[in-house]
Nucleic acid binder design. Sequence first.
DNA 1: GTGAAAGCGCTAACAT
DNA 2: ATGTTAGCGCTTTCAC
Lengths: 338, 338
Amino acid sequence: MEKSEKNITIVDVAEKAGVSKTTISRYLNGKFEFMSAQSKHKISQVIEELNYRPNNLARSLKSKRSRIIGVVVSDIGSPFASILLKGISNCCDRYGYGVMITSTDDDPRKEREYILSMIDQRVEGLIVNTTGENNKFLEKMAQTGIPIILADRPIDLNLFDTVRTADMDATIKAMEHLKERGFTKVGFFSEPLGNIGTRIWRYGAYERACRDVLKISPQSYILESKSEEFVERLLERFITLNGAEKKAIYSTNGVTTLHIVKAMRRLNLKFPDDIGICGIDNWDWTELVGNGITVISQPSYKVGKECVKRLMFRLHRNRNAAPRLIELDCELVIRGST
Amino acid sequence: MEKSEKNITIVDVAEKAGVSKTTISRYLNGKFEFMSAQSKHKISQVIEELNYRPNNLARSLKSKRSRIIGVVVSDIGSPFASILLKGISNCCDRYGYGVMITSTDDDPRKEREYILSMIDQRVEGLIVNTTGENNKFLEKMAQTGIPIILADRPIDLNLFDTVRTADMDATIKAMEHLKERGFTKVGFFSEPLGNIGTRIWRYGAYERACRDVLKISPQSYILESKSEEFVERLLERFITLNGAEKKAIYSTNGVTTLHIVKAMRRLNLKFPDDIGICGIDNWDWTELVGNGITVISQPSYKVGKECVKRLMFRLHRNRNAAPRLIELDCELVIRGST
DNA sequence: GTGAAAGCGCTAACAT
DNA sequence: ATGTTAGCGCTTTCAC
């Protein structure tokens, strides 16, 4: 278990190859125009023999390019983040970038802390799925020159590139579908909106669809708590308030849908007969419950990928490009619950 | 969008505070014994004013302690990895460590490449959920002095710390339960075993349980492909081969369970009557399908946490401790499918 | 208690 | 085509 060899550095390679370390550095950076074929060959050979690997800390410190990007998600344990991260990871890989990941549990203090410490590591850019509570802070960070891409949750569109699901469009589609199926009352179910852009926008989309599509007044039901008790009362309230009408739930994300479905099951409520249900996030299990749950499928993987592409664009093409909102299409998957 | 201020360094702080950068460095590293109360106070003030943040690349380069650990998982998109990472993240945070994460898609080449590049970043330790195809390579890495903890998938227990689910015990419990419920044939369903320690061990556990608990001969069904066609044929084979016996499936992980449940639904097979099913991984949806699926609940979060704890132990207490196998208890959750 | 000076392992002018 | 030199922003002897 003892270290077999002391750390090999560029100097060792230079000595053994009989050239200066500048030439080695040039080799490492692919500047082959500046060396003879035999130098090049000799160097490659020595590197191989010595099993040399450049120290990236030193490279980054000197060159100011770490080839690492930082990613801050709200909950790394959620399927949404998990797929988003997969998209980010895979795409970064293709660009030769590494990824540092942190998860904030939607705690604004952690968000700030993690972002600062990633900057301390000299990440070249940031992809942030923000809590929505750090707008000023993010703005300040951006002003210091680090590119920031917002994943999924928008704040100020004039300040940041934002990549997300086109959920306004999706919501309209969903509501039209509910109308077609004869639902006359649709309740909006969501986790607390807070300052979370996505939730607020989705509520807006729902409101608009109520007005334009269903011509009904909006009703919102917020899961202030996820206790069984609370969710059950929420459902009962929805039912009581809408009497004999044909009722459907519109759920804003997979987590919410999950809690609702669990509660319905405990209350022995069946869909679509007792209540219809339709929600955002086409998670694996949604097709397995009852006769399947009608969902809007978010392209989370692609959101991740597009975040990286936009970040690379900023990094390598135009640091000062005007911020863009990139909205990705999503699909309505109709199943038995509506 | 222009950089508001040039990068402020330890020298700037030193000048403004009227002390040497050595003292600032001492301050940054909490060595307050070596400075007067007023120096300390002055420095803290200047740092505040200047909004100074130490460059971690420089610190790590010089001190050889990056306070970053590297994590390599096989699929960042899977619920298992996602929860594991959450455990790792949260726990690292408490120790003041950052995390670099990569996902290999079970490609051994990527595994090697990512590990090397993390070492190039001077991560202090590695947590690896290995493909099982890089044993020699991992051994070599370990010999260079970097602590490596294996998450979930064991290879050589004499060489590496390993943290995982106590699935031998779990499997026995599951099989006893199946016996109690009157199942007379139990098939082992899994993704291809390959060199993946966990799968191989689980097969071993199943075999042993067949012999010791159910006194039947083992039957294994491998999802060589996840096409609908393939999984359906596999199920049909299981049924055909076991005629009128009371049959149950033992599935080795959530992914496998998911594919089986989907196929059963397409074939209109009901559990527990047509086939019982019981599997590892208590994922959210397992309680929602039919009358719920009986599962073994893996403590993935805790596996992550324990990996970090063990790594920190190695890093700070004893780099040469003998490798340990840490197996975490899991729980049998009995539901309608058996 | 505090500082000067020597690096950590690289990259990048500026030479030649 | 290649080398010399001066750092990047810190930490760490060693000296006072």
